[in-house]
Design a protein around this nucleic acid. Sequence first.
DNA 1: TCTATTACCTACCAACTGGTATGGATGTGT
DNA 2: ACACATCCATACCAGTTGGTAGGTAATAGA
Lengths: 204, 204
Amino acid sequence: MDSGLLDQTRDKILNAAYGEIHRSGFQAASIANILADTKLTKGALYHYFPAKRVLGLAVIDEVIQAGFEEMVFRPLREAEHPVEELLDILQRKSEYLNETTVKLGCPLNNLMQEMSPLDEEFKERLTRILKTWQTTVQNALVQGQRQRQISADVDCEAAALFIVAAWEGCWGVAKNMQSIKTFRLCMAQLRVYVSGLKTTRKAK
Amino acid sequence: MDSGLLDQTRDKILNAAYGEIHRSGFQAASIANILADTKLTKGALYHYFPAKRVLGLAVIDEVIQAGFEEMVFRPLREAEHPVEELLDILQRKSEYLNETTVKLGCPLNNLMQEMSPLDEEFKERLTRILKTWQTTVQNALVQGQRQRQISADVDCEAAALFIVAAWEGCWGVAKNMQSIKTFRLCMAQLRVYVSGLKTTRKAK
DNA sequence: TCTATTACCTACCAACTGGTATGGATGTGT
DNA sequence: ACACATCCATACCAGTTGGTAGGTAATAGA
């Protein structure tokens, strides 16, 4: 058979699994629900994925990581003025966002919080995405320093880490308050922080 | 019987439940494990708590909220110089912290991420803690403005929200990377942000 | 056309889940 | 001393979980 580019069934399972995991977390994600969504049966699922765990790992690699790559990492890497692009992305992310998105939260963050202490392989793959994220932001800041957009005395590694952390933090509080307004207010402050890196300043 | 101040059995269940929930989350928290920890049986547990859900809510109110009250809210409210106290707390929190603490993450954040979309009552109680947190920080900043420690053009509500969000964000990344060093680096940047509120600055 | 493999379905299972019913032991009020 | 509530243990249950065994239909290769 094909098994090559278009593997509709596998993709359907993958997407349904992503949805279920996003809604309920990995552990509480019910295989029965995934199958109900896809109108498939266990035979199909266990044909493509030998276990629920493997399905979860595939969702991380092929859906979540791919999504970040397209929506955040690539734009940031390819931008000519990465600092502006970073502020742009923060802006865009806080605009395009609906009720359910804010209610369910960031899929990466959700999975990290749930699975990192429980499963080493989950942790590794999720942390890899997080570190790529940090590194990408860090490179943007460094390039910003070269372009005289970011103050020279900024510790880009620490700042990038903090930006990622705060970013996820904004997702978190907005998710709990279930309020888009909260998310926007919070992200606006993050942009204030990033903008603050432009002006020269002293540590304490 | 007593049922008053010292109810050892109930406390034992509550603490064991807190531990289990902290380790595995609420849904995955196994009543069997809690009972194994306490060396009690179901009769005891269901004598004090009519359902697992109620036990979870009790853990939120009587363990988690109480902890925040003692460790964060009260010191912040009672401080004469709340901005210094806030920076102090951020400092203390990043120092006193061991391997397992960073591995398991912030109990409040964990529960919020997991339960807010799933259970309205969980959400309400957790959000209440979060809002108390925000308000407490906000009051500290406002008082700081009165004491001429915080720049007058700071939006204290937004800043407080962001501080809480970033705070939880620091917990989050540190938990996933399972690195105390990461936590400290991240919290240090948060202190930089807070310190930055002292100097006068313009929004964008 | 015969064979082998892929793709998927149906029926089933052991393990575990939260929860309940019952009963015994220990006080407590009268 | 009797009735009664509190505290907790034991045994049990229905429902759900991820996972498996075995079969069928379709397709591919020769």
